[in-house]
Amino acid sequence: MSNISFALAGIGLFVLGLYALIVHDHLLRKILAINIMGSGVSLVLVALAKHGGDALPDVVPHAMVITGIVVAVSATAVALVLMVKLATETGRAMLPDDSTE
């Protein structure tokens, strides 16, 4: 039972993060939102890895989560660097509103 609820919680985190990613302007918040989403996914992975109550949990998802964390760390690092650069260039840690056109 509990692994399902963990999984649901993970998905909840994912959705929450997505929401934050979309609505917040500040880049730091966006980066945090991405991280939260990442955590959500990890949670899902781990939770779903546990098949039964007593059996040994599957190691593969754990390996995946670890890898995922590593990836997330580097991604966050890159994102932070970019944000700092952008902030020093423009004075604001936000994306310009209409830069696509």
Binding site: L21, K30, I34, A75, L82, M83, T90, L95, P96
Partner: peptide
Amino acid sequence: LAGAMRYLLTTLLGSL
């Protein structure tokens, strides 16, 4: 930089 940032957020979201 803004383009790269936008790209980063997008690509991360996609990967997740």
